[in-house]
Each structure stands twice: as structure tokens, then as C-alpha cells.
Design a protein around this nucleic acid. Structure first.
Lengths: 245, 245
DNA sequence: TAGTGGTCTAGACCACAAT
DNA sequence: TTGTGGTCTAGACCACTAC
């Protein structure tokens, strides 16, 4: 019955359940709790920490949602085997790479105000022909191109005039504008590279590309970004964790 | 303040929060609650249904996790815009396609007991050289091949001798054996088709393929399946919904 | 039978947004 | 100031698993 020493700071603005979840996660990642091992039961842990059981459950739920713990009624809560991989999250590629310790570089190929065509209007839930930004960027890591990104944003909602998008990620800029992304719907596929892309991405004719289309919604449910992106599969893949609900 | 009529059956074994979530979801999908519209606040809804607030919150949380609702403190809970797509879930391709109304067909190309090599042993957390099933299948829809699937399963844990995998999905069989999948970790990429694959999948030389590697874990945290799959991108793509946590 | 997680109640106080 | 969701308490009863 392993029980990592957990400390609580009740004066902190960080929720108690989150403090607990973080410390259990650290114990799992560091190996203090081995894969397959059972952790203490909810009631005992709650009592030991001076927490109510619902709060303790909420802490554990965080890690269940991350795919690190599994619960079985009548049995207990165990650590899932296998290495924990960083999963796809609601961030931009720039943030993704930065977090992975890489140093991404960005070339802005195009940034223009244009009119929404049928597809874009549909995805962004705006009138066809209304003003949208069209943003094309090339993402490089260690001077190797890895992705070609094309984003559309409603010009009404988002100001992109005075931003240096070579140093700032798009999502970081949106956060700066007070726009908080809550939901994204993605479609991941593959296709052959086109001639123009091949030149930009330093790929050969007919090479396979990994593609991703995404529409993102802010915390009021409005669509704020639609993008179609292409990745070099030798240099990028999507990792995800699915959890049974 | 739209409020779909919700009925509760307290004698049902289905949890109350789930009954509520289902009925709100139906109201959203059917359009009774429009995208962007706010639903009633938690406290009022709970009172109206004779539920406690935590139970009402749990119901709403289900739909937030599905990316259908967004909550904002001080504001309320709103319906997310855009069409709701069926997302990648913890099921097999067979189940996926069946649910989508298709009628998948399966050809078993190979089913043999063999020894785990380095990679497979690593993924399944078994000793190198221990007995594993190697299962190769071709999935077809409307007589068109759409995916080539190669799975490995620990022979100790899983009985595959007397199954007709042409009519039963792998995951369906595992459920039948009392194995409940809880977590899966996936990696999605792309590459060129190989010669043998091209013949089986009816693709041209050098065509792009969408690839997926997956390790699945049951509710005790053990790895029970490792698979490397290849999909024809013209006929299949992965859809997913991400939610900010 | 004992121990575990799953569900549910009936409140409380707080932080944040809109007015 | 008012209304909203976010967090937290201190219990209760039940369903399932393992022994």
C-alpha cells in the first residue's frame, strides 16, 4: 500500500484536489509507485490528508482521465503499465515543440485579410464573404522544415495586425488577447505532397504527408480558428491517450 | 433559458447523472438547444429535477468532456458551435465502422502463436521470447480494402484458438473473455505503402498510408494488445475532440 | 464477510463576470 | 450587487470483488 508523502497548502490558490493529483502523478512518473501497483484506497487517503472523500476522488479522477490510473470497483486503484507519453493537447504546434524542449522557428509566408469562402465560412460559423485572416506559416526545428500550416481566423474577433508571429505562437497570441480555447475538433489523415509544398518542406515528389484539420472553439463556444496543416511524417506524429468513459 | 423536459427514473440502474446527460445531449443534437445558447444554471436545474447540485454538475461534466458544452464561471454554460462528430474512442475499427452504419468484412490473413521480439515484449510488458499471438487481418467495407491490421496479444492472457475473427471484432471477443479495455495509447503517422501492402490494399506503388500504433490496457493496468495498423487515407481518417483541462 | 470504488445528498463559501 | 460556476465538507447507501 504505497503512499507517497503528500503535503497540502490550504492557503494556496491552487485547488486541493489539484495539489494532490500533481503529487501522485510525480510519484508515478518518478517510479516511486510502480506500474501495476495499487495505491491506497480513497477513504484512507482522504482521512490521512484531512480531506473529504469527494475531494480525494476528484484528485484521482484527474489521473484516471490522463490514463495513468485505472479504477476497479471492489478491487482498488492501480497504476497503468507502459511509459507515459505526452499526449495531444489543446495547444498549438509551437507550444507542443517548446514543451518538448525543442526550439521551433517560424516563417510567416502570408498574412492577409480576405473573404471567407464556403468551407471557411462553414467551419468558422460566419457569413460567407465576411472578413477573415488567412495565415500561412512554415514551422522549422533545427532549421529543418517540419510543418506547413494554414490558419483562418475571423477578422472581427481576432486582431493580428501588430503581432510578430515569427516569435509568438498563434495560440499564445490568442491567450494574450483574452481568448481562451476550450474545445478543438480535429481530423487527421494523409495524402501525397503537392509540388509547391514539396519545395517548402524539402520533400521529394509524391512523398506522403500527415495532415490535420482543426477547428477550435473558445470558452463561449464560438469558433475562433480553422486550420489545415501538413506535417512531414519522418519528423512528426500525433500521440494520444484514450480513456474509457 | 431553454430547459428541455427531462424525466428521471429513480428505480433504474442507470445513474441519475447519466440519465440527465443523455437527455441534454439529445436536446443538443436534435437542435432543441441551439449552438451558442446558454442552458439553465446548475442550481436551478438541480432543484427543478429534485437532484443535488453535485449530481447535476456530474451530468454537465459528461457533456463538457465530450466537447459539447463549455462552462464559464460567472457567466453560465453554453452549447459549442459546429457539428458534433463521432470521435475516436476506445473501440476497435470493427466497432467504429459498425457504429457508423457500415458493414465491415474481415479477412484473417494470419493467426499464429509466436515469440515476442524486442519491440513487442517492450510494448506488452512481457518477457522477450514469451508466447504471443500474431494476428494479421484485412478490413474491407463494401468489398473495398480499407485497412491492414497487425495485432499482438499475450498468449498467456488471451485465448484466440476458437474464435471466428471474420465475424467478431477483436475487442468484442476480448470483452467476451471478460477483459475490459480502460486505456489506450496511440501514435498516428504516415508513410509510403510497401509492395506487399499495396497488393492487399489495392493501392499504387508509393501511395501514402495513414498509420496507427496502439497499446491497450485493461482495467487492471496490464497491456493486453499491441497493434500496428495501416489505413488507406482516401477511405479513412481519425477524428478527435480535444477539451481543455 | 470485508473492503473497494460508484453514486448521491444537502448544504457551505469562494472567485469571477456582468450590470 | 447579483448571478454564475469552482471548490469543499461530512456524511450515506449501494454494487461489485475477493476471500
Amino acid at each position: 500500500m504505497p503512499n507517497p508523502p503528500i503535503t497540502l497548502d490550504r492557503s494556496s490558490p491552487i485547488p486541493l484536489y489539484y495539489q494532490v493529483a500533481e503529487q501522485i502523478e510525480r510519484a508515478i512518473v518518478s517510479g516511486d509507485i510502480a506500474p501495476g501497483e495499487r495505491i491506497e484506497n480513497e477513504v484512507t487517503m482522504a482521512a490521512g490528508l484531512g480531506l473529504s472523500r469527494p475531494t480525494m476522488r476528484q484528485a484521482i479522477q484527474v489521473l484516471v482521465d490522463k490514463g495513468m490510473l485505472v479504477r476497479r470497483r471492489g478491487v482498488g486503484t492501480q497504476v497503468v503499465h507502459g511509459k507515459i507519453r505526452r499526449s495531444v493537447e489543446l495547444t498549438s504546434l509551437f507550444d507542443d515543440l517548446s514543451a518538448a524542449g525543442q526550439q521551433p522557428r517560424t516563417e510567416v509566408l502570408e498574412l492577409v485579410r480576405t473573404e471567407a469562402d464556403d468551407e471557411v465560412a462553414q467551419e468558422l460559423q460566419v457569413e460567407q464573404g465576411s472578413a477573415v485572416w488567412s495565415l500561412r506559416r512554415l514551422r522549422l526545428v533545427a532549421d529543418k522544415p517540419i510543418a506547413l500550416m494554414h490558419n483562418y481566423l475571423p477578422a472581427e474577433t481576432v486582431a493580428l495586425e501588430d503581432v510578430d508571429l515569427t516569435t509568438t505562437g498563434l495560440y499564445a497570441h490568442l491567450r494574450h488577447l483574452g481568448i481562451h480555447m476550450s474545445v478543438a475538433r480535429q481530423r487527421i489523415g494523409a495524402r501525397r505532397v503537392e509540388a509547391v509544398e514539396a519545395r517548402l518542406l524539402d520533400e521529394k515528389r509524391g512523398a506522403p504527408l500527415l495532415t490535420m484539420q482543426r477547428t477550435s472553439y473558445d470558452n463561449s463556444g464560438r469558433a475562433v480558428e480553422y486550420g489545415t496543416h501538413a506535417y512531414r511524417p519522418e519528423h512528426y506524429a500525433f500521440e494520444l491517450t484514450l480513456v474509457d468513459r
